[in-house]
Simulated scan of single mutants.
Amino acid sequence: MMNDSSVATKALFEIDNYIDELVKKIELLSYVNPINIEEEKQKFFASKYLSDPNFLYPSIDFDKFNLHREFFSQSIEQIEDTRLKALYEEIIYCYSGLIQCIETIGEGKKFYYNSLRSFGTPTEQDVENAKFILHFDSEDEDAEMFTPKYSCEEAEKIFRGYSEQYDFSFDIKHSSTMGAIAMVLNNIKTLVINKNHTFSDNEMNVLTNHEIGVHMVTTMNGLLHPLKIFSHGFPNYEETQEGLAVFSEYMSGNLTIKRLKELAYRVIAVDSLAKGYPFSKTFRLLHNNYDLNREDAFYITVRAHRGGGFTKDYLYLTGLKKIYNYYKEGKDLGVLLTGKVSLEFIDDIQYMIDQGFAVKPKHYTDSYLQNKNTNKMVDFILESLK
């Protein structure tokens, strides 16, 4: 067990705490979402999909250069444990990369290259996987489970009811200025619901398992460790986190072909970005070549092109496949629920638990207890992805 009196341990906790304070200032999603999506959508549709939107972004309220300097001023060499020293070096490089993303939002290629460095881009195999999924027919769009029926207030009641099985509490807010229909804000333990959206049964089943069952579970577990890195995020945690969340949709029996195709369209959109396509061409690729309705095509294109080119969206599908394989190999999902962690650091997480720097997960995703998926086609697709 750790010796609190040791200088090395004291240095580790001081650095971990200091990084935690700095990270609170750099919530990338707070800055990369345009503030004039709806106005630009009307103009884009009026232009017959030819003129690229001119998006505006929230102003940045921190000193970017100073923040870089504070990250790199940490006395990492005081951490005697070589394994943890290497981890915290990687953490600092990762967060410095995110600051570079934020400071170049709206600057076209500059932002795109920083995004590329932080999140990567789809491989040819990822694109082939996406095209494979798009060959399948979606479920009947008019089916009862896809019919919009719940207001924002009614959705909140359903979220609250679902959450009763978990031993934690959180805030719920309503917003009319968000791209997603629901999202968890990790740093303030809050679920935000889109005030403008009417929710279907399928959406509620998906969102309860995805947002509460994984994102909120990992938020709450992340707060229980002596080290705060579990709460604000390991390097490259997004792929694992979204993979776990979509896998929860699968395990609860709510992952549809329609949803898998949505994730596939995101890969196609990010790939078109990597090919140098402008916004209008990515949109026309989705809408004209792949027959995606224009509303969905617009929002998926926004997600990929926001900021100047945000590549993160392809990670949902790669993350899902990695978690699916991990589960099929009979490995422990619990270690991935310890916080905002990533698959590549599993051995480090176990090491930190063994050393007393971390704890086992208190909250466990309900859907992971039993596989309720009965859709053989979904299984076939997930097995076939390479």
Rank of each mutant, 00 (worst) to 15 (best):
P226L: 06
N209Q: 15
N325A: 13
K386L: 07
G276Q: 03
L50R: 15
N325Y: 08
R259A: 12
F170D: 05
N202Q: 15
S175E: 04
V206T: 13
V206Y: 13
E154T: 13
Q74V: 01
E139V: 01
E38T: 13
E107V: 01
G106S: 02
N3T: 10
L28G: 09
S175T: 03
F146Q: 06
A269M: 05
Y250D: 07
I229S: 02
P34W: 00
S175K: 02
G108Q: 00
F146V: 03
E107G: 07
D140W: 00
N288M: 10
S384T: 05
N236D: 12
Y327V: 05
H287I: 02
D291G: 12
L343V: 11
D348L: 12
V206F: 13
Y57H: 05
L286I: 02
F310L: 12
K10P: 01
L286H: 03
T104H: 08
A143P: 05
F310S: 12
I26K: 03
C101G: 11
F168P: 08
A304V: 00
Y88A: 00
E238W: 09
S75C: 09
Y31E: 04
L317M: 08
I172D: 08
K157C: 09
T338N: 11
V214H: 15
I92Q: 02
S73N: 15
F298S: 07
S47E: 04
R294T: 11
I37C: 03
D348M: 07
S115Q: 00
G120A: 02
G319H: 00
T374M: 13
F136M: 01
Y290R: 09
M204E: 12
M352V: 04
Y18T: 05
D291N: 15
F234E: 06
S384F: 02
D137Q: 15
S342H: 11
Y368K: 08
S138N: 13
N371S: 10
I76H: 02
E90M: 06
S163T: 08
S6T: 13
D296M: 14
F357H: 14
D63K: 15
G308T: 00
I79A: 00
L343K: 13
